[in-house]
Design a binder for these strands. Structure first.
Length: 486
RNA sequence: GGCCCCAUCGUCUAAGGGUUAGGACAUCGCCCUUUCACGGCGGUAAUAGGGGUUCAAAUCCCCUUGGGGUCACCA
């Protein structure tokens, strides 16, 4: 039987980084085994729906390179993939359980439930439904139904029974039903709760492996019991370790960016983010750390997922992002930055020129958009000059150096790296100074900055005309700039 | 609080009875060097505590401690 897994988020918010990892692990597992990855939207809570959430799930999964085989955007043989469109199915199954006495109607008001909980809390009792409605006589039930008193359907749990199940990550886990509440399965608005909808759908969609966050571990016995109520085969469970804030609490909005969609605009590459989160709770068993999606698919195994939660460490993600930027071909970077370059007004420059600039700059930036913001001087003459740099690099002889260099550079034929370097070295030797005393003032003159690519590369890429123009401008305004007037 | 899960450098982790407890990020130092980076070399840094089992324990068992999750007509 082929593997079928699902990622089943609730559209009550945008895709969470933790959700992205859950989806990724499901996807890797599916692909590793040649199975299917399904996206199912669990929109049974009508009060917390967030506009655009489903689009965000789909967009971000696609951005990350996770391909959905079946889902709201794809269709499939097991749809619909919105739970809100499957109400009849849940109703039918709930009625079956009601007929079989596995669930019962509960007419209790939320006020009574709240009161009861408060009392239990105060008296340090476990907060549990007291089963008042389980003791209702048939006449009372009939009367309530006649009077259209709203009701929910609750699971009737067996008394004092051990529910055991095997978790692929945690091995055997067991719970006693005496610690579990009679879970509501159908709400009074006719919508199922998560527990019912989830089990019914996983069964009908022939899900073989339920891979989800650890926060579901304690409700799994309810699900196991439900499978048993229906007489269905129980899928394999794998509860993933949680993603943590730096204080080791469950990753939440309080700290850092928890929404996946925050990452692309910050300049994170999808491959880097995917690679990074793949390693949060899993590793291949050796020292390798850089993996493409295909390699992850090849290497991934549930056996190597470990149990403890993992802190989302932004610094390591940043490092990984840097690695991926360095590795990425220039024209691919160009494609990603197209809009940014356009917006900055740089797209009027020839593509080959931009590609060269990207090539020089990508070695020294951490986020892809920095390529645009830090590359201004490739596209515009500097209007300001770093004051610290001016102070340090533009001592009086620099003016003469720049003048002389400009004269010599003007005579070049190719204006390439080697030719430029020769001129610098030769002139430095001639006047008995270190080449760096020429290099630093020149960098400042042509870029306005004290850092960036190697100067000879920089000059070559900028081209003779631009370099000479900027150097002359620097010489002409040298005294003003040094005096802090320009 | 009840129930459940978990526990190796600051962080991500390797080592599933015998290792000087390994790697990566971060950090520190040195080298390279025209700046910033990259890179190279090296350093600091961990088995939560206590009991067992064993010739031998990070590793198996128990207890303690600590952390987390969950206890809704939310998922």
């Amino acid at each position: 039987m082929s593997v079928r897994v699902r990622y089943a988020p609730s559209p009550t918010g945008f895709l969470h980084i933790g959700g992205l990892r859950t989806a990724l692990y499901n996807y890797l597992f599916a692909r590793h085994h040649g199975g299917q990855f399904i996206l199912r939207v669990e929109d049974t809570d009508r009060t917390r729906l967030v506009d655009g959430a489903v689009e965000d799930f789909i967009n971000m999964l696609e951005w990350a390179g996770i391909q959905i085989d079946e889902g709201p955007n794809k269709g499939g043989n097991f749809g619909p993939y919105y739970q809100s469109q499957r109400l009849e199915i849940y109703k039918k199954h709930a009625e079956q359980l009601l007929r079989e006495g596995k669930v019962y109607r509960c007419f209790c008001t939320s006020e009574r439930l709240d009161q009861m909980r408060k009392f239990q809390e105060k008296s340090k009792l476990p907060p549990k439904y007291d089963r008042q409605c389980l003791r209702l006589s048939p006449e009372e039930i009939h009367k309530n139904l006649e009077e259209k008193v709203p009701y929910v359907l609750r699971m009737k749990l067996p008394d004092d029974t051990i529910v055991r199940f095997k978790d692929l990550i945690r091995d055997d886990v067991e719970f006693n039903t005496s610690n579990i509440d009679d879970q509501v399965l159908m709400k009074s608005d006719g919508f199922p709760t998560y527990h019912l909808a989830n089990v019914v759908d996983d069964h009908l969609m022939e899900i073989t492996h339920v891979i989800r966050g650890e926060e579901w571990l304690s409700s799994t016995p309810k699900h196991v019991l439900l499978y048993q109520f229906f007489g269905w085969k129980i899928p394999e469970f794998a509860h993933l370790p949680l993603l943590l804030n730096s204080d080791r609490s469950k990753m939440s909005k309080r700290q850092g960016d928890t929404e996946a969609r925050a990452y692309p605009p910050k300049g994170y590459l999808p491959d880097a983010l995917v690679n990074f989160i793949s390693l949060l709770g899993w590793n291949p068993g050796d020292d390798r750390e850089i993996f493409s999606m295909d390699e992850l698919i090849k290497e991934f195994s549930i056996e190597r997922i470990h149990k403890a939660g993992a802190v989302f460490n932004l610094e390591k993600l940043n490092w990984m992002n840097t690695m991926y930027i360095r590795k990425m071909p220039n024209d691919q970077i160009f494609d990603i930055l197209k809009d940014d370059l356009e917006k900055a007004g740089y797209s009027k420059f020839p593509k080959e020129y931009i590609l060269k600039c990207l090539g020089l700059m990508k070695e020294r930036i951490n986020f892809i958009h920095e390529l645009v913001t830090f590359s201004v001087y490739f596209f515009k003459d500097p209007e300001t000059f770093d004051p610290e740099g001016v102070k340090k690099r533009w001592a009086p002889p620099a003016k003469e150096y720049l003048t002389q260099l400009a004269i010599r550079l003007e005579k070049t034929k190719n204006f390439d790296h080697t030719e430029i370097e020769t001129i610098f070295r030769f002139y430095a030797e001639e006047i008995q100074i270190k080449a760096s005393e020429l290099i630093h003032p020149t960098r400042l003159a042509v870029s306005g900055m004290t850092l960036g690519p190697g100067v000879f590369d920089l000059l070559e890429v900028l081209g003779k005309d631009v370099v000479l123009r900027r150097m002359k401008h620097a010489v002409e305004n040298f005294d003003k700039i040094v005096a802090g007037l320009a």
